[in-house]
Nucleic acid binder design. Structure first.
Lengths: 229, 229
DNA sequence: GTGTCGCTTCGATGATCATCGAAGTATCGA
DNA sequence: TCGATACTTCGATGATCATCGAAGCGACAC
């Protein structure tokens, strides 16, 4: 008897549940009420959906008093969701229509690392500078990259998780950087206050100065693409 | 507006459709009647499901007279399905119950490359012999491996597809070998008659001599695991 | 030409399920 | 303690959809 993929897929296959799962792809734990708002459903409907997602292991619950925070149960589910996004994007002619779309396409969180145009530019810039060696499905930190990131404060963890991983970006159709390094970069830029998480979505909002500093740090050509594009 | 993953997931999320998609993971094109048998539904039900899968781009149709052959629309969908299998398997306590299960677990097609125990053994043997360098998410052909496989007749194609890719095996919870190399290995062993495709499932049936030859070729220790395990 | 086979379409049927408002419970803050 | 808030449970409702057999169409073989 093979694993029952229909069960898992059907859970993701409800529009409201899909919206909540996608919201959780921002990497933050969100309350039931926040998720209900994201999915534009009533709190009672959200409640029953969340119970269902929890029961089948897609999300985990952490209680804090009356607040109940939900998060994705792990990185493999996040990778699955992002792959679903990539395939769905490849199939559907998406036309950017609103400011939210632009923000998401420019810079957003793909669970714990940077995605969107800026994420792809980061990946490419690191490649150009020989700090990572990334081709097709393989992505490695080079000796030079190792030294540079150590200098910037990155400490590699001994873990099954790769240092670098190329993650296919659904909006750009090219790779952005995932793995320990991708995660550290996001943590670092948030800690420096270069950008903030958007409270309503997965997009990252860079301040003007923060964006300049980010691009300077990672060698991203500021004239290549700007936000007004 | 983000891509609508619910649509895609809901298509996979029907039990009958999931069974048919999984059957197509064997890499062969199958007729509507064969797929109806796989899913144990009536031909008319299969017909409407297949029309639906085709409409949303998951499968492609090739007509040959009155026979209509369906196949998965591409490798990225195959990878998604395999990922669904891996996550589903990790979540559900699966107990091997029948001969079909054993066959699938021992050697099966994961779209176009070998999976199951034998697939994992192949991957590990190639690593042990230094023919591929595979760790975590990265998998590369070594210089020695390149020479050895060239000697065996493998010709790398210039293509976006990686030579090697580690693909997580849902039944073994470890990596088997995908990519151009993984595909070539399957084509080669089928051409040599070492194994045949099972007509009812995705499993590969090795003849006794074929299995011995396969293990000898790729340096798989014949005493490590045998089929009677 | 005729009968068989592969497949689709049609229409009816029953099951499933997302949804909401109302009511209830637990937590929090003044 | 009390009112507000976060959240869950309940039950009713309407929509969706998988399913099948019957009927029909086109390809195939004799």
């Amino acid at each position: 008897m093979q694993p029952d993929i229909a069960l898992l897929a059907a859970e993701i296959g409800d529009p409201s549940r899909a919206q909540m799962l996608t919201a959780l792809l921002g990497g933050q734990a969100l309350t039931a009420t926040e998720l209900a708002l994201c999915a534009e459903i009533s709190p009672s409907t959200a409640s029953s959906h969340l119970a269902r997602l929890e029961r089948c292991g897609l999300i985990q619950l952490r209680k804090q008093g009356r607040h109940r925070y939900f998060e994705l149960s792990g990185a493999s589910l996040a990778a699955l969701l992002e792959q679903l996004l990539a395939i769905s994007a490849a199939q559907a002619p998406t036309v950017a229509t609103g400011p939210d779309d632009l923000a998401l396409r420019y810079a957003r969180l793909c669970y714990d690392h940077l995605a969107g145009q800026l994420g792809v530019q980061l990946h490419d810039a690191l490649c150009t500078q020989g700090l990572i060696d990334s081709n097709a499905d393989q992505c490695q930190l080079t000796t030079a990259g190792s030294a540079r990131f150590a200098h910037w404060g990155f400490v590699a963890q001994r873990s099954r998780r790769p240092l670098c991983r190329a993650c296919l970006d659904w909006s750009e159709r090219r790779s952005h950087l995932a793995g320990q390094l991708g995660q550290w970069i996001v943590e670092d830029l948030l800690q420096r206050g270069w950008a903030k998480r958007d409270l309503q979505s997965r997009s990252l909002s860079f301040s003007t100065a923060g964006e300049r500093a980010f691009k300077h740090r990672y060698g991203i050509d500021d004239r290549a693409v700007s936000r007004s594009a």
